[in-house]
Amino acid sequence: MQEDDSEGKNVTAAADLTRDRQKRERETWTKVLASLAETRDKRLFAELFGHFGPRIKAYIIRLGLPAASAEEVTQEAMLSVWRKAHMFNASKASASTWIYTLARNLCIDRMRKEKAVEYELPEDEVDPSPRHDGEHAILEQRMKTALGTLPEAQAQVLFLSYYEGKSHSEIAEQLGIPLGSVKSRLRLAFDKLKTHWEAQ
């Protein structure tokens, strides 16, 4: 942990350092995936699995699948990383973005199949948000570091979209704001991130 009593400046500097480290890591994993595509070296795949497997699993659990299904979908996703590695283009996307899209698509397919069951549940069991309350603050911080410095309200709508798979209407209802405000927050957040990425 960082010292709790550091001044605002130090906190910002620490966040910058974390961001730099994350950027370097991202580039490293992109290189690993690109060379897996060329060499088909299973040791490289095992490295990618060690890094991305537990992250994909965490992401899928957040979207609402039970841990056992999340484990299976993660295996499927990593297997398609292996099988589709030749289609990865490092000039177009980073490894984490490319793997994210594979995992997302497989997760959507699986959720569609399991959806019928979910509709049967009473409403208070469907809503997954209460169980995230404890870790919420930490996640928010990690996410902010990852996404640059977005205002709280904008980070929140991205969080609900990507980490909880909520639709615009569901977000509007949960936050008690109009649908139009959800959309404009998303647009603003997206613009800020694009500017932030261009500056990097």
Binding site: G50, R55, A103, R142
Partner: peptide, 24 residues
């Protein structure tokens, strides 16, 4: 694809959940 990048960044930032011991 820019929007997918948000997903990629969040995947990097997420708190990992351990896979089953025999997963690898």
């Amino acid at each position: 694809s820019q929007a997918d990048r948000i997903g990629g960044e969040l995947l990097e930032a997420i708190e990992p959940v351990a896979m089953e011991p025999d997963a690898l």
